[in-house]
Structures are given as structure tokens and as C-alpha cells.
């Protein structure tokens, strides 16, 4: 018998989690689709379900003294878009996620919890070293989103834990982003690319690249990034960077696209962004 629990507080939820291995339902926009069977039929869950989507204490957006943005896990995408303190790059990405209706329901934590390689918000989260705060009755720990996500649908969450907060650490980066889906709205990403960089006195003092939907999770490689840090921008060898990422990008064929397209477009986007980065040297 599947148990459904709607807690009235976070503590209440944590207690439930300490004794139940369960699905954690936020906005439901992914889980309700995954478990949907048919109209007029209840979704079929194979484990208990905990509904935390409307816990008010997990709905907030605030800034700490270091300029990091702290987001309560159950804050909806629509609220992130309305917030004056959420960094623009996140808004750019969120605006292209699903549809206005879905953005009124869905949360960023849902994207993180699902650990889908096509989760659009994971791309800026991982590129910006964002963190999640996990809580259980036994305490709290902080993980980078990149550490939290282990693979397709696999995460580092323990059964008694729940993500309570997302921390967007302050960054001084410029960004170049593009999502490619099947159509101009409401599309699941075929391939996406985000480049973050900082240029100071013509030197590339920070350089980061992330790809979505072209591997088992978001692709980011610190080793490659480090190779290009602190070089003169004019010395950035576009072909070399592309060849570094060439093997790392390992897309698949599916009902939405094919691996040739995904790979080629990932490289095209990277090339375009690198050229823009180099072109923007004098700004």
C-alpha cells in the first residue's frame, strides 16, 4: 500500500523521510508525467510519496552578506523570473524551460532532483559551481550540484535527506548560452551550450564550458578549463579548445534527434561562442 504524506512543516517532512524511502514531490511537472497512466486513473507510484511543493518555509529568495543568492527549494521558476536578485543567466535559461504554465508550477530543485541530462537549469548551476543544502533529521550537508548529480536519474541524496536550499554563489562571469530544442517553445533540449568567462587586461582569467543533453549528465571539465585560464585572449586557440571537448561530448540517438546532429551542433555552438569571446576582447 502506497502512503501519501502531505507535511505541514519542514520538520514534519524530515521526520517522515527518516522512516520512509519515498518520492519527493515538488511541483509535480516531471514526476506526475512519469507516473501517469491514463486519464481518470491515479498516477502509479511504486514507493511512498512526500509532497513538499507547497511548504511555505521552503519558498524564498534572499541574498547573503557575501552576495550569494539563496533559493528555498520549493520556489517556482516563475518567482525566480520575477526576482530582481536572481542572476540574469539563470533567468535566460529559465525563460526557455517548458511553458509559462509549467514555470508557474515547476521548481529548480525538481530539475536537480530528477538528474536528467536534459535538465536545462543544471547547465548554469553546474557551470557556476552552485550548491545544494541537504537536510535530514541528523543534520545538514552542502554539496556542489556537480557532486550531487551522479548520473542519469542518479543522485547523492540519502533516503532521509531532502534538498532545502539552492545556493547560487556569486560569480563575476560573462555568459554565452544557447538551447536547441525541436521548436521555439516547450521543447526538450536536444543540445545546449553555456560558456562563462571573465577577461581582465586582455587575459582570460576565468573560462568555463558546460554542455547539456549530450552526455549522461551535464558535461563540464575543469582540467580543460584550467588549461585556458590566465592566457592572453588572443592566444586562445579555438580549434584546440574544440578538439579538447570533441571526445567528451558523447550524445545518443533518440526520438528527438541523433548523435551526429547533437555533436556537430555542440561543437558549432562552442566555436561560435569562442569566436564571440575573442571578438569581445576590446569591450
Amino acid at each position: 500500500m502506497i502512503n501519501h504524506y502531505v507535511p505541514t512543516s519542514l520538520n514534519d517532512a524530515l521526520k517522515y523521510l527518516s522512516t520512509h524511502d519515498c518520492y519527493i514531490m515538488s511541483g509535480g511537472t516531471d514526476l506526475m508525467v512519469q507516473k501517469h497512466v491514463s486519464s481518470l486513473v491515479l498516477p502509479r507510484f511504486d514507493k511512498d510519496v512526500l509532497y513538499v511543493g507547497e511548504l511555505k518555509e521552503l519558498q524564498y529568495i534572499k541574498e547573503d552578506k557575501d552576495g550569494n543568492i539563496l533559493i528555498g527549494a520549493e520556489t517556482k521558476y516563475a518567482d525566480l523570473l520575477l526576482s530582481p536578485i536572481v542572476p540574469e543567466i539563470y533567468k535566460t535559461v529559465i525563460k526557455e524551460i517548458a511553458s509559462p504554465n509549467i514555470r508557474n508550477m515547476a521548481t529548480m530543485v525538481g530539475n536537480i532532483g530528477n538528474a536528467s541530462p536534459a535538465g536545462d537549469s543544471l547547465v548554469p548551476l553546474i557551470l557556476n559551481d552552485a550548491e545544494v543544502v541537504l537536510k535530514s533529521v541528523n543534520g545538514e550537508r552542502v554539496l556542489k550540484v556537480s557532486e550531487y548529480i551522479l548520473g542519469v536519474k542518479k543522485t547523492a541524496r540519502k533516503n532521509d535527506e531532502i534538498i532545502v536550499e539552492i545556493r547560487l554563489l556569486k560569480q563575476n562571469l560573462r555568459y554565452l548560452y544557447r538551447k536547441v530544442g525541436a521548436r521555439k517553445a516547450e521543447s526538450i533540449t536536444k543540445v545546449s551550450c553555456l560558456v562563462g568567462y571573465q577577461i581582465k587586461e586582455k587575459k582570460l582569467i576565468d573560462f568555463r564550458v558546460a554542455f547539456g543533453s549530450v552526455g549522461v549528465t551535464i558535461i563540464r571539465n575543469l582540467e580543460i578549463e584550467n588549461k585556458y585560464k590566465n592566457i592572453e585572449v588572443k592566444d586562445l586557440d579555438v580549434d584546440r579548445v574544440i578538439s579538447d571537448y570533441y571526445q567528451l561530448v558523447t550524445p545518443i540517438d533518440d526520438q528527438r534527434s541523433n548523435k551526429e546532429y547533437r555533436h556537430k551542433v555542440a561543437m558549432n555552438l562552442l566555436r561560435k561562442f569562442l569566436l564571440e569571446l575573442k571578438g569581445g576582447i576590446d569591450e
Binding site: 514531490m25 509535480g28 508525467v33 509532497y51 504554465n101 508557474n104 508550477m105
Partner: peptide
């Protein structure tokens, strides 16, 4: 706010 009721659990 407009939402899609086909994927909204009544709990929410």
C-alpha cells in the same frame, strides 16, 4: 496564475 491541471497533484 495559469497552470496545467493535468500534472498538478491535488495535494499541491
Amino acid at each position: 496564475r495559469p497552470i496545467n491541471s493535468c500534472i498538478a497533484p491535488i495535494a499541491n
